[in-house]
Design a binder for these strands. Structure first.
Length: 137
DNA sequence: GCCAACGTTGGC
DNA sequence: GCCAACGTTGGC
């Protein structure tokens, strides 16, 4: 199965891409939304993930990868939701701003644009290529 | 099982 | 700070 691609959001105040680079890897927990949880469960080891800064920055700033597939979220006492583990791959040469993404015809159907509150969303191969091209390769 | 009220996310 | 989107909760 070819690797799939995803996008995760994080408020840089809480956990930024620089934090991920500093830590080397992190447990991506705290997701409490069923749609987002389904996407977490669908992730495979080695899948690559766009790392987006919400609230502040409003841009995709880096690429991460899945290093551990879904397991019970240790921060969820009810045991209903899952977490994965992510590691940094590389910071983008140039962040890709939300405004640019909205303006790009290639990204018109992108899940994160269509449903802005979704914290974990799928990215198609074409969208992935387009975002990285906008980031300067 | 419906739906109004409420809470949260996230862009502006 | 405001508001739209949308998920969840709880009364009926």
């Amino acid at each position: 199965m070819p690797a799939a691609h995803w996008l995760v959001k994080s408020e840089p105040n809480t956990y930024s891409y620089a934090d991920l680079e500093r830590d080397g890897h992190t447990v991506w927990d705290g997701v409490r939304n069923n749609a987002a949880a389904l996407h977490l469960k669908a992730m495979s080891e080695g899948d690559e993930v766009l790392f987006y800064h919400s609230q502040e920055g409003l841009a995709v700033v880096g690429v991460a990868k899945v290093v551990r597939t879904a397991f019970l979220d240790p921060s969820d006492p009810a045991g209903r939701f899952v977490a994965v583990e992510l590691a940094p791959v590389r910071a983008l040469k140039r962040p890709v701003a939300l405004a640019e993404m909205k303006a790009a015809p290639a990204l018109a159907g992108m899940a994160m644009l269509r449903q802005s509150r979704l914290s974990v969303s799928p990215v198609t191969a074409a969208e992935w290529t387009a975002v990285l091209a906008m980031a300067g390769g």
